[in-house]
Amino acid sequence: MDLNEIKKLADLMSEMALTEIELEEGGTRIKLRKEILLPSKERGSISVPSTHMEHEIVTAIETKTEGGRYALIRSPIVGTFYKAASPDADPYVEIGDIVKKGQILCIVEAMKLMNEIESDVDGKIVEICVEDGTAVEYGKPLFRIEPS
C-alpha cells in the first residue's frame, strides 16, 4: 500500500462522511480515523514536506479521534490564498461560521486576478487549513466543513 492509496482512502472518507475506515490487503492492514478539530487543539508541529498530500495523511492518522465528518474545500487553481477581500476587510469566514453552498469563502489570487472560491456544501467551518497569504497548489485543502 502506498501513499497514493492511503490518500484515496482519506478522500473516500471525506466524500462519504465516514469517521473510520479499516482495510486489509495482502498482509497489510491500515486504519484511518477522522478527528473533530477544535480551534484550540494542538495539532503538533508536523512540518509540511514537498507535497500537500503527506500533510493530509499524517493529520488523518496521527491525531486522536472523536468522531465527526468533513467536506474538504480544495483549491481549484494555483495561487495565493487570502482570507479576506482586502488587507483591511473582515475575513470572509471564521471558524465556527455556518456557510451555505455557493457562499464565498476566500480569494485565491493568481497572476493579479482575484478568484473567489465558493463552498460547495452547506455546513460549519471547522478548520481553515492554510495561512493567509500563503501559496496554494491545485487540490490543496483550504477549509474543512462539517456538512449540515
Binding site: 494555483v78 495561487g79 495565493t80 491545485y138
Partner: peptide
C-alpha cells in the same frame, strides 16, 4: 496555462 503561470509566480 493559468495554473502553470501562477505556479511560476508563487515560486
Amino acid at each position: 496555462i493559468p495554473n502553470i503561470l501562477s505556479a511560476a509566480e508563487i515560486t
